[in-house]
Computed example of a mutant assay.
Amino acid sequence: MINSIVVTSPSVALIVIVSGMAAYVIARSKSIWLKALDLILVAGFAVPGGVFELLGSRWSRSPTTRPRR
């Protein structure tokens, strides 16, 4: 249990710090590419995962599920 805490705590802290810095750059940038990336990320948060299942997307099925015929 201690090993898990020792590995997980610094990992989460590093991810939070790096993600925050990246989000700041993406949000404040005037670059058209970063604005497009921002739009894609926000759209990804806005679309619920069930939409892909309704559309029958190949990404919605688990690897063990066989396609319906």
Rank of each mutant, 00 (worst) to 15 (best):
I2H: 04
I2P: 06
N3W: 12
S4K: 01
I5L: 14
I5S: 13
V6G: 05
V6Q: 10
V7I: 15
P10R: 11
P10T: 06
S11K: 09
V12M: 09
A13S: 05
L14P: 01
I15T: 11
V16F: 13
V16Q: 10
I17A: 14
I17C: 11
G20L: 01
A22G: 06
A23G: 13
Y24Q: 14
V25N: 02
V25Y: 13
I26R: 00
L34A: 02
K35H: 08
K35V: 10
A36D: 08
A36P: 00
L37P: 01
L39A: 15
L39M: 12
L39W: 07
I40H: 06
V42T: 09
A43I: 13
A43C: 11
A43R: 09
A46D: 03
A46S: 07
A46V: 13
V47S: 02
G49V: 08
G50R: 11
G50F: 08
F52C: 03
F52Y: 08
E53G: 13
E53H: 13
L55A: 10
S57P: 03
R58K: 14
R58T: 05
S60Y: 07
S60Q: 01
R61P: 06
R61K: 12
R61S: 09
S62N: 13
S62V: 00
P63H: 01
T64W: 13
T64N: 06
T64C: 03
T64L: 14
T65F: 09
T65M: 15
T65E: 15
R68W: 08
R68M: 11
R69T: 04
